[in-house]
């Protein structure tokens, strides 16, 4: 089965030379990947990152932004490796949502 990320040669639309100014949160996603995959930490391999992106369904893959896919994948890898638990991540995200609402 051809996977949806493996798109070389498929029909698609006209290329629009669009630019995108990266937002700070996107740069910080990138920074997380760089740190976690470096020699010192080795908590994430680039191919694990790719695998967890590829295992998104086709709909989600197309709908999500580039760094949303990365963020999804980083969280999955850290959970799979036991670096963080689902529960602590859920609690932390709720805490941040509360904090943002109060701000």
């Amino acid at each position: 089965m051809r996977s949806h990320h493996d798109m070389g040669g498929l029909p698609a639309g006209r290329c629009e030379p669009d630019e995108h100014e990266y937002e700070m949160w996107e740069k910080r996603v990138d920074a997380l990947m760089m740190l976690l995959s470096d020699k010192e930490r080795q908590l994430l391999k680039v191919d694990e990152l790719r695998r967890n992106i590829e295992s998104l369904g086709a709909d989600a893959y197309d709908r999500m932004g580039y760094y949303e896919r990365w963020m999804h994948s980083i969280s999955q890898t850290l959970i799979q490796r036991g670096v963080i638990s689902i529960d602590e991540l859920g609690r932390k995200m709720a805490e941040i949502e509360d904090r943002d609402e109060r701000a």
Binding site: K45, V46, D47, E48, R50, R51, Q80
Partner: peptide, 8 residues
Amino acid sequence: NPEELAYN
């Protein structure tokens, strides 16, 4: 081999 690296 990336096919193995992908599974740590």
